[in-house]
Amino acid sequence: MLRRFWRKAWAIVSVNHALMNEYRAEIVLWALSGLLPLVLMGVWMNVSRGGQFGMQPVDFARYFFAVFVIGQFTTVWVVWEFEGDVVEGRLSPLLLQPIDPVVRYLGMHVGERITRVVFIVLFCAVFFGLYPGAVWWPGWANLGTAMIVVALAFAMRFAMQYTVALVGFWTERASAIESLTFLCFMFLAGRIAPLAVYPEGLRRVLWWTPFPYIVDFPVTILLGHEADPWPKAAVMLGWLAFFILLNRITWRRGLRHYSAMGA
């Protein structure tokens, strides 16, 4: 049973990996389109020289570079993929197969990640070559924890966006809703600035929302800072479970609606 599952999973991932390898030039460009943290890094390094942020320029450099790296692992585009599949009718044949379409979407993302890893290593080499002062070693324990948390962050991001995508069963504007949630990720997750420089009250509220768990939490662990991991991991797992549940309920109801439309 378990072996058959792994064989199927491996088949789907390796097919997608081969496909994504063909488009590696495009993937480099996608990776580069996440350069915004490096732009903000410049401003924050400059600003931190004047103010009382409790962080040195080099801390900001490390923080934003870690945001860039983590962002490479957590980007998700399933909402556009799914929208295209529904609008152009590609979903119907997928539904006939004895495998849930989510497996394909997941496989697509995982396969792409494998292609991307090579470029991420290259980016790291270039960045640390240009700025050797920013090199840091988080320690094996933190690195291992960061990898687990990044995997969970990706799972949560995927579950959230896939749930938004499923709204596409009812309306054609699912990607517009996604652009609203994307703004939340932009401003509430720690992408524009470390959550540490946010006002205290706002920060406390934000840790109850799912957003900082995608960016600030894994980044803090990767930097090897005091992250207070256990309560945060509990909230994160709670949100993950919530989104998976919401997703499955939406999927069932949406599917009924979809077939009722008669396509």
Binding site: V43, V47, S48, G50, G51, Q52, F53, R173, A176, I177, S179, L180, L183, M186, F187, I192, A193, V197, Y198, P199
Partner: peptide, 30 residues
Amino acid sequence: NFAVAAATATLGLIGSLFGLWLFFSRGGTL
């Protein structure tokens, strides 16, 4: 679509103002 675009623009503006404010919040200068 226009309504959604207007909502997105409003949220984006609030976020941008907040992001800019953060630089000045603890005595930093731009």
